[in-house]
Structures are given as C-alpha cells and as structure tokens.
Design a protein around this nucleic acid. Sequence first.
DNA 1: GTCTATCATAAGTACACCTTATGCATGTTC
DNA 2: GAACATGCATAAGGTGTACTTATGATAGAC
Lengths: 313, 313
Amino acid sequence: MIDNLARIPLDAIRVFEATARLNSFTRAAEALGMTQAAVSWRIRDLEQRLGVALFVRETRRIALTLEGQRLASASSEALNLMRRAINDVMEQDQSVLGITTLQTLATQWLATRIGMFQLANPDLAVKIDVDNGLSDFSGHGTDIGLRFGSGQWPGLESRFLIPALFTPLCSPELQASLDIRTPADLKSAPLVGLPQEWAEWFARVGMADDSETPPPRVISENQAMEVATAMAGQGVALGNPVFYDREIRNGHLVRLFDANIALGGGYWLCYPKERRNLPKIARFRDWMLDMARSDASNIEACRLSGQTVGTIG
Amino acid sequence: MIDNLARIPLDAIRVFEATARLNSFTRAAEALGMTQAAVSWRIRDLEQRLGVALFVRETRRIALTLEGQRLASASSEALNLMRRAINDVMEQDQSVLGITTLQTLATQWLATRIGMFQLANPDLAVKIDVDNGLSDFSGHGTDIGLRFGSGQWPGLESRFLIPALFTPLCSPELQASLDIRTPADLKSAPLVGLPQEWAEWFARVGMADDSETPPPRVISENQAMEVATAMAGQGVALGNPVFYDREIRNGHLVRLFDANIALGGGYWLCYPKERRNLPKIARFRDWMLDMARSDASNIEACRLSGQTVGTIG
DNA sequence: GTCTATCATAAGTACACCTTATGCATGTTC
DNA sequence: GAACATGCATAAGGTGTACTTATGATAGAC
C-alpha cells in the first residue's frame, strides 16, 4: 500500500484536529496561537493534499463533511496517544519553572507582571530565586536567568529585555514647589543618588560638571531605595523609567525630562542554548519578550505624548 | 495538564519513527528522501525540545534510550493510526495515475523512461492516453497532461520539461560518405522534413535562404518518421536532440552540429492547480522534473564534450 | 438598512528546515 | 599500521512553506 501519509504535513493534522474540535477556524486559531487566516490556509492546503473536502463552509459556520468526521476522530485519537507518550517521556518537572533574577528586576518589574504569566499558564509553577551573583544553570532547577550586562555569556542564549536607561524622577509635589523646567534648575534641587551618576547625567545633557553642582543629599544602597525616597518627596532621583512606568502613569512620580540617557548594557533573559526549545522555557521566553516589547512601546508613547515636564535635545 | 505536544513539531515524529525503526540516521534519511544531515539535525532538535536523549550515539551506530523506546512505540502506533485514517479518507483511486500526452513525447521520451517510475512506484498504476488534442481534466481520470506550447493554460499549473530544439541528424554511414563539416555542406545532402523547417534552420545558422537550397527529398508526417528515415541512412533530418539522446549516444545517429536551434515554446507537464499536492500527482511531477533536469544536463554535456561533428557560432 | 461575526484571499515575510560540504571517530582491509 | 570505508556531527547557506497583515465578501442579527 502506498504511503500517502508521507505527503501530508503532520502539523496540519494538529490544526485540523483543533478546528474540528472547536468547530471554528477563528477559535482554533486562538487556541493554537495563530491567525484565522493561517488556519483557513492550512485546512485548504490539507484538503487539497487529500483531494477531499473536510469542511462544508456555510457563512459564519463550518461543518465537518463525512470524511472530515472520520479523519477527526482518528486525528484526535492519534494526537492523544502522542500527547500521553510525550508527557511521559519528557524531562521531569516540566511543571516547575525556575528563574533566578536580580533584586531590582524582581521587585520593580517581574513582581508586577508575573501574575499575568501564571494566569495564562495555570499548569506551570514558577519559582523565583533572587540572586545578584551569576548563578549557574547546571542542575539546581534553574531554567531561566535574568541578568544585567552585555548579553554575551558563553553557552547561554540571551534575549534583550530592557535597556539601562536613567532619567530624573521626583514627586509631583516637589516638582510643583521647585518648578523645575530645565536641567539647570536641578542644580538648586535636592538630589538623591550617587554623585558620579548625577555627574554623568549632567554631562550627557550637555552641562559640563565644572559648575557648582551640589552633592546629592541622600545616597541609598540601591535604585529602588533612591526612587522611593524621591517618591516620598525628599528629592530628585535618577531611575529607569521602564521600572517606574506605572508610578509615572498614575502620577506618583513625575518624569522631569523626556530624554532617555542610556548606559551601556541592559537587562537580559538567558538560558542554556541547547534548552532553548524546552516548552516551559520557550513559553516563558515568548511571554516575557512580549511584555518587554510592549514596555518599550509604552515608554516611547509616554515620551511622545508629552507626559514629561521638559524636553531635552 | 500542560500540552507539551503543542511545542513539538509533529513532522519530527515521523523522522524519529523512521530512524527508530531502521536504527540508523542514514537509512532513515534514504527512506524519507532527505539527507543524513537533515535527520541528524531533526533528531537533535527533537531531543532538545523534549529535554531528553532519544538515542545513544556510539560511533557508526545508534541505540534507542529507554525514553526513545517508549516514544518509538507510541509514535509508530499513532502514525499507523493516521496512515490508515488518511488512506481511508483520501480520494478514491490514488492508485491509478492518468496521463494524457502528445504522440511524440509518448514514443520518444516517455516510453523509454516510464518503466523507471513504475519500478520506483510499484503501488501506482499508470494509464497513458495518447491524445494530441487539448484534453480536459474534468473527470475522465486524467491527472496529468503533457503538452506543447507556452506553458500558459488557465487553471493549470505548468512545469517546463523539454525545450523545442531541433538540429540536423543522420546516420553515421551517411555522414561518413558525404563528409559534412559545415552547414553549407548540407546544401548538397539529401534532406528530410518540411522545407520551411529547413529554411528556418539555414536562416538561424546564418545562411540566407536565397541560395539554391534543394527541396527536401522526403517529407513524412511527423518528426519520429523523419528521424527514422534519417537513421536508415536516407538523408539528414531535423530532430529534437533530447528525444534522440540515446541514439546519438550509442552511435545510431550522428548529430552534425552542436548548435541547438530553439523554436518558441516547449513541452510542459501540467495539472489542475488545486490538485498540485495530491500525492500521486506530486510524486510523478517530482520524478519527471528530475528526469527532465538530467536530460538537460546530458544534452549540455554532450554538446560540450564535442560529440558533435562541427561547431556553429 | 447598518452592523457584526465569520471565512476567503492576496501579498509580503521570516524562519524552520533542508542541503551541501566538511570534519571526526572507529572499524576494516591489506 | 596505513589506507580506506562507514556512519554521525556540525557549520554555513539557500529556499519554500507556513505564517502575518490587510482586505474583501457574505449573511445573519438587530
């Protein structure tokens, strides 16, 4: 007997099975994470390869043909068989995703977003390990690392998440009382943070640090603390606008200027190269890159919509 | 339970199943019509997606791991299920391939090659229908048409097979006795075929037809007859070198000049666009295009290796 | 009549998958 | 113990399939 199966792309069977089960191209597309057009295309292609119509297209609804019904039941049976076998064979603990992350990223970014991921992936437990050192991936249940740097780590595949930006932030009350409109106005404002960071910032906006920049009044141990201080009205701090997007949007923090001053490097998501396609890793990666992308466009939108006080450059 | 299957390309399962069954990357590659490298790549990719080794690689041999064994039996079961369902559902008569073809192509080209196809496809019966008219594809069990023309037929997908070339051919004895070395020598030779074809040929090689070209001595009803006449030593005929490749190679015919004079158009393989992926059609098409390709390179090699008597241009 | 939900189709695009080419290790032959 | 043969691994590069985006078409709901 001739092996017609050889000419049938098996991935089409998966699409067909979902479509038959949900009785809708649109819903199958949702379920499979693709577009309705793609499902429509795929089913038509399958039908042509078989030389048989699988669905009758009525407007706004489809119905399986007789052949479609027969194929559907076989497909679902075969897919379930495979599904069981694969779950059976796969690496243990596909149900727990281990993440090591930097403190900053954990509190300022991940904490507010990870809930979304867990809602969308109720079957995946997430174990977050805050660790500022460079943890290794061998054993230890670590699947994904969130790190700061250049993105170059041997043996690891790295995907860029968030740029290392900083920009002056303060409370709306402080902004109102000091009426800061240009970088020069900051010379007389209470500054929070490391002197060299402020010097860098002034230099980047074109103000040589020769003039009498007052030393920052408060120096904390990390960015989160500094910005908290600023939010409490104690001064102006340098912070990464990506991390404080929410506070800026709801008015708890004011972003004084629209310029994003970039440091070298950035925040990266990474994992061992050869584990790139493990389902749990791939799912988290895809989700997180989506989030980062939408952050990037948020920041851009925020800058362009003039929610800042002043403009530089 | 989390659907890990969603992240597994099902086509990889087919590759895995063949590899497990044949216990060799190389042989699986042969069976699947792909390269050993591709199989190796695919299996590695699958292993990475599963996070589990499926084979142990010893040098010059592989062995299934425990997980591999479990997956192999499930895969073969699932694939057999699908195979049966698809054969069940597919259009009837996937076992008979209907071809309509032109007389010339049938006798001069197809007849000597179709055996190869049937040897390679013992499960497919071939029904050849010689028909010089433009047969239609609706019903009638016609799957594939072999036609002459421009390749533009509405509703059909056409693949180019053989160019419409012609070149003077005669028997080796005639060549020896007449000692033909230049096109001019043909003016005194006995010609076979239609006068206007010869006029066209002389014009194409740069000899205006003003001079006293003798009228052809013999005019037959088709090219096959004319070339047969030439082969019998009765004269020089114009024939398509592709069709007489074998006779030229084994010395029954001499190709006088290496120039290929091309007419417009050529021979095409065609079928209804929407049936392009029907297994029987796809298999024949792929095979035939392969043959045509190797013909083309044969002709080229023949020209370049100086098996002709004279050179033009 | 307008609006909306669904599938169809066209055009453009990207990346997965394959090939080609080569390397490497080991077993085999003389 | 060379020289060769065989089978798998790996890198680099090309290509076509299978997507997306954008738009059209149809008919049922209101």
